[in-house]
């Protein structure tokens, strides 16, 4: 129609329509579209967070093994976990079959597939000795080697929070995305 009206382009479309369009894109292009503008970044991040419409792609699985069969310390006593982090080991299986899983960019330990989750995040420089306690739907629960600190990190983002309380595992009801 009139080109003056069109000057807003896709950004001028109602958000619902834009989400409709973005939801049809493969994950790669969807995430790439975050670079288009701040409005798009907000929209994509927001919808991903809400889990509405825009799909989360299954990249692979974490699996854990340790000296006890309960997995990643899920039923372990808090004290045990923290005093012997080496008991908790694990691996990441990449389902996409590509050398560069989606998670690489933010979590270097995945690329290296280190047997232990003693990780050194660039962006967690102050917490350079972390133990993975549990994971659920793209969230990771880490413990620092002190008795009270818990970290929660989201897989696809360089993002983490210090939890104000102690938790042992997803059984405690905090690991929901």
């Amino acid at each position: 129609m009139d080109s003056a009206k069109r000057s807003t382009g896709v950004a001028g479309l109602p958000n619902d329509v834009l989400v409709e369009i973005l939801s049809l894109l493969p994950a790669k292009f969807l995430y790439r579209s975050k670079c288009v503008s701040k409005a798009w970044l907000d929209l994509i991040t927001d919808r991903l967070r809400c889990g509405k419409k825009l799909p989360l792609t299954l990249e692979g699985f974490f699996y854990g093994y340790g000296s006890n069969d309960d997995g990643w310390g899920s039923n372990k006593d808090d004290e045990d976990c923290l005093n012997s982090p080496d008991e908790v080991d694990g691996c990441f299986i990449n389902l996409l079959g590509k050398p560069s899983p989606l998670l690489d960019a933010s979590l270097s330990f995945l690329r290296n597939q280190q047997p232990s989750f003693e990780v050194d995040f660039e962006y967690l420089a102050n917490y350079n000795c972390l133990t993975l306690l549990d994971s659920c739907n793209g969230l990771l629960l880490f413990a620092k080697n002190t008795r009270d600190t818990r970290l929660l990190a989201a897989l696809s983002k360089k993002n983490f929070e210090l939890l104000p309380f102690k938790v042992r595992s997803s059984n405690d009801g905090v690991l929901y995305y």
């Binding site: 069109r6 000057s7 807003t8 382009g9 896709v10 950004a11 579209s33 670079c35 288009v36 503008s37 701040k38 409005a39 798009w40």
Partner: peptide, 12 residues
């Protein structure tokens, strides 16, 4: 290219 095709301003 997306910005160009869809006429969106880069505000970053």
């Amino acid at each position: 290219q997306i910005r160009e095709v869809f006429n969106i301003k880069n505000d970053y």
